[in-house]
């Protein structure tokens, strides 16, 4: 098997004296979805933030495409960031309220001092199923599902290899949810994207992920193929 795209080893995240993530290890290959599940407060989001180099871990290693991310300065991380991108739960909260959709999508490229080529933003909008006429609107003028597509388009702008999806559909209406998940599936099949997928909904996890890691009190207590996940995995299972 080829080298994993992401290899996290013995990751530790602390808030003051509290250890939120305690020696967590996992890997994700290109084209693969690893789901992280577990009760509220068990450390899923903290793991995601450390993986994204948005929170400095207290220990362990995060290797992404052969680069060791822990210990890099922001200046050194900057050229790598477009390759691993977050999509967060709250579609409105993750967009700047005063930035037009077109500019919100181009923003990560501008931050890289790589202003988008003519038509690139429109292409991204089409990729995620957004009507390009929405480009001039502000986030509050879009629906939740449209905003979440903007978030995905933004993440795609720098041609990422890995998306970290923290509850990407939980805030969406049920009739809109399946469409966003199908979009993520299509992008994975077309481009071989890898996903770290955090989700409370076990039925969705079983459907969408390839493998599942179960977290409890900061540790991964079980990893298994998604199809072998029982829908009561969070109530029972190893304590």
């Amino acid at each position: 098997m080829s080298d994993p795209l992401l290899k996290v080893t013995d990751l530790v995240v602390r808030y003051g004296r509290h250890t939120a993530v305690d020696r967590v290890s996992f890997e994700i290959h290109a084209g693969e979805t690893l789901a992280l599940i577990g009760p509220s407060g068990c450390g899923k989001s903290s793991t995601a933030l450390a993986t994204l180099a948005l929170r400095r871990p207290a220990g362990g290693s995060v290797r992404f495409e052969g680069h060791e991310l822990t210990g890099l300065r922001e200046r050194e991380l900057r050229p790598l960031r477009p390759r691993f991108q977050p999509v967060f739960q709250d579609p409105y909260g993750s967009l700047s309220p005063r930035l037009r959709i077109r500019d919100a999508i181009a923003e990560p490229l501008r931050a890289q001092r790589r202003p988008p080529a003519t038509g690139q933003v429109e292409t991204l909008m089409e990729t995620v199923g957004l009507d390009t006429s929405l480009g001039d609107r502000l986030p509050h003028e879009l629906s939740g599902g449209q905003c979440q597509r903007v978030g995905i388009a933004r993440a795609l702008a720098g041609e990422p290899r890995l998306l970290v999806l923290d509850e990407p559909v939980s805030a969406l209406d049920p009739s809109v949810r399946a469409g966003v998940l199908n979009l993520l599936t299509a992008l994975q099949e077309d481009r071989g994207l890898a996903y770290l997928f955090i989700c409370h909904d076990l039925a969705l996890v079983r459907h969408f992920a390839h493998r599942v890691a179960v977290m409890r009190q900061g540790r991964i207590v079980d990893t298994r193929p998604a199809r072998e996940l029982s829908l009561t995995a969070l109530d029972s299972g190893p304590a």
Binding site: S143, S175, V176, A178, L181, N182, T185, H207, F208
Partner: peptide, 10 residues
């Protein structure tokens, strides 16, 4: 892996 989905929004 596809879910039937309702296009558009309310």
């Amino acid at each position: 892996r596809w879910l039937p989905s309702i296009d558009g929004a309310p």
